[in-house]
Amino acid sequence: MNSETAGKSLAYEKPKLINDNKFHFCPGCNYGIIIRLIASVLEEMKLTDKTIGLVSAGCYVQTPWYMDVDFVAALHGRAPAVATGIRRVHPDAFMFCMQGDGDLGAIGMGHFMNAMMRGERWTTIFLNNACYGQTRGQMAPTTLLGMRTTTTQDGRDAEKTGYPLHVAELAATMKGVVYAARCCVNTPANYAKAKKMLKTAFQKQLDGPGMSILELLSACPSNWGLPPKEALAFLTENMIAEYPLGEYKNVEPKIDV
């Protein structure tokens, strides 16, 4: 279908790296946009031949079925540890590590902190949808105060569950981290910003040691109980207010002693 018929040329189709499997994500889920964003940057930066992607437990664990690069799926929370093992064996591989908010911020926090402490060289793509999507919407470390989930049915209450976790800011404090930023794909403009940040993050990994992290806020219509359009509006009004977009760290990747 993408052959150029008379009088018109192709302006946009999904990246070649994305195969023809239908996405299983819920209608309006931002993950479908995000994995194509990743694929398009991998293609533009000519990284696909040496890419090893990591996914962990969450809706995005299906990404290997849609994106034709090497993938390893890690047990819930363990992706930073699995990636450490891969990185030692393949120092020249290009690696990105997709993790959700429960995966990275709850069960995997110890592994994530220590990977940052070790200055592990890969790009963490942190998908923040403020709930456990795959398990149908429980509270996650990044659930907003007052936000209803299946385990905070009267709205998240700080007294019982503490406060939302800010990963990009946290990562920026770690010496082993050379780039930490947050964006989202809720508007075409933010899509463009996210793409620019992802390119920067990927370039850091090519330039030298240290972890680069891009946190992407992502709407989860099914578990937020909102139709896709309103889920995006919720993200714009509430998520961005709690999780300001922007670059929190951007230093030259080198051993800094």
């Binding site: 390893v72 890690a74 540890a81 699995v82 450490t84 093992g85 592994h111």
Partner: peptide, 20 residues
């Protein structure tokens, strides 16, 4: 690598083994 715990250590083994 001195891992942060044994759970991490075995998952690092998982990664290195997956890498061949």
């Amino acid at each position: 690598v001195q891992a942060e715990c044994e759970t991490a250590a075995i998952n690092m083994v998982f990664g290195a083994a997956a890498a061949g």
